[in-house]
Design a binder for these strands. Structure first.
Lengths: 324, 324
DNA sequence: TTAACGTATGGTACGCGTTTCAGAGCAACC
DNA sequence: GGTTGCTCTGAAACGCGTACCATACGTTAA
């Protein structure tokens, strides 16, 4: 393989000058520049980025970790980050952790070992002290609320999102509202549950333990939830659901059983996935791509030693369709 | 930053021995090994992977390119590749091309510049000669049919998949069948189009140029397609659609306009995405994660100089629901 | 006229770990 | 006793590009 030394010889200049040409340094006279470019062409020179990275001490790569790549939330998040990377000329190293702490450590090592200039955490199960330890090796951005003081975060304000849905349902006259969420133990889950019950107390809505479901993620789950709901003697007039897919399952089953939506049961979803349009589901739009974009921009600024706010909230919006 | 030289000094051995310890080389006596490990611990030594990569001439990173990360097909593909990477101890560098040829070249350079050991192309618009040029710099696997002789491919057998759908429609008595696909210039697009028209000729199905659509990807696109279809004086009795989302859009609009599915228009989708269940769409199930897995395994074998078959087909299955 | 500054170029150290080669020590085998 | 072969260790070269410092020349300002 040819390297800059051979180019330098052929063009009768020093390696330094070759490097200057490659990096568009202004202090190179036109004739030398041309000679170098000519030599590069004739010898089919290809630079070796590993040498560049070693020498410069940075790679222009950022690491992104998510539990599951093919979850719609995370794939949109990654897409947003990917756009920002293309904009900034960064590459994206992606790691699927499956919520496994060993996999997470594996990923953190990429920063430690200087493979990446910074990290974006889509979601993590590692405790704050692990993150604090890693923050000494480079910049880290979390895309969820984080207890660690040493890393900045950007996240979607789920509490206000839930309020949007509940306000809307109350305006429509609903007083009996059920809740259906995904993982009750995740940060998002705890947050949503808490916000829901706070709201309920504040407005003294009626409540029944049968109106609560968790661990629901899929359309199938939604169908199950609907079956349970429809067998209740005393059922809610509206359901707030933490996932468009689950909500779609509920609507699907309602239609099948002849339960009219929204007259007999109003349903709201979460995420504004494409599916929500098809089943005419009122839902809460999360700016997920924007979340990814913002995370990448923040990281970019941090890497270039600009200050950024340590917590950044993004707002949601309620999208009214025919399910409420 | 401490490096192996300092470790060597502290442990009173040579850099070579330190390197041997780090790489678990067997020919190191226990006492020296312990001394090195002790020094590493005391000095908080962290290896620099950029130096390792430069020295070894490889990075254990593979590059993955897709047009759009948050398209369900590609996010599942990436997830499959990600699983395989975790299995093999490889990292994954992800690039979103947006079907832009400059972005594709940008990505190919990662291989040229030795940033990655090999490439997986989710889908590409680059002509075969570009791929051939790149293949001299490293191993490349395509996840769609490729005209390039120099790269191996693994793909889902769209021809037989399309046949499944068409056979089914013919059995139902359909003779007027339209086609709607995504990118007509991608390998998949060319393949599907070709297969469709071959089939059509073979069974002498009627045909009209208005029954063909391409560049359709989203639910919105499907709605547009439906509107155009329904305004035709002479329209097909069935549509074969290359995406569940587009198909869902068609069904959505049909329902809205009171066109009965499948009586007035039968529709088949592609992918068996969750949405197809909700709209009761007959569709073709693709083993997408397996595709990603296989692609990564093939690349792994190629990188380790094992031979692999140059073309690998995966089979599909037809899922009958109520849209046909 | 001289100091000061901008332009242009090269020498060399630096970033850091791996690998090849040479050699020493020691055991086993003929 | 001599040869063969394995275990263990280190010196030095190698992979490759960047950045700092020194230097030389031309120009402008004082």
């Amino acid at each position: 393989m040819t390297n800059i030394f051979e180019i330098a010889q052929k063009a009768k200049v020093s390696r330094t000058t070759v490097s200057r040409v490659l990096n568009n340094h202004p202090y190179v006279k036109a004739d030398k520049r041309d000679a170098v470019l000519q030599a590069i062409k004739e010898l089919h020179y290809v630079p070796n980025f590993n040498a560049v990275h070693l020498s410069k001490g940075k790679t222009n790569i950022i690491g992104v970790m998510v539990p599951k790549i093919d979850h719609p939330f995370f794939s949109q998040l990654i897409a947003g980050i990917g756009d920002a990377c293309n904009r900034h000329g960064y590459s994206l190293l992606l790691h699927q952790s499956n919520n496994d702490s060993n996999q997470e450590l594996e990923f953190f090592n990429k920063l430690k070992y200087k493979l990446v200039d910074g990290l974006i955490l889509g979601s993590t199960i590692s405790p704050p002290h692990v993150l604090d330890e890693m923050a000494i090796y480079g910049k880290i951005i979390s895309c969820e609320v984080s207890e660690s003081k040493s890393i900045a975060s950007v996240f979607i304000d789920h509490e206000s999102g839930l309020q949007l849905a509940l306000d809307h349902l109350r305006e429509q006259g609903h007083q009996h509202i059920g809740l259906c969420i995904g993982n009750a133990k995740s940060g998002v889950g705890i947050n949503r549950k808490q916000s829901f019950f706070n709201y309920q107390q504040k407005y003294q809505l009626r409540w029944h333990a049968d109106w609560y479901f968790d661990g629901k993620y899929t359309i199938e789950d939604g169908i199950q939830v609907a079956r349970q709901l429809f067998s209740l003697p005393d059922r809610p007039t509206a359901m707030v659901v933490g996932s468009d897919y689950v909500a779609a399952g509920i609507i699907y089953e309602a239609r099948k059983q002849g339960v009219r939506v929204p007259d007999s049961l109003a349903v709201t979803g979460f995420d504004n996935q494409p599916i929500s349009k098809v089943v005419e589901l009122s839902t809460i739009h999360q700016p997920i791509k924007e979340l990814g974009n913002t995370a990448a921009d923040l990281l970019y600024n941090l890497i270039h030693s600009h200050d950024v706010p340590s917590t950044n909230k993004l707002n949601l919006s309620f999208i009214k369709r025919n399910s409420t």
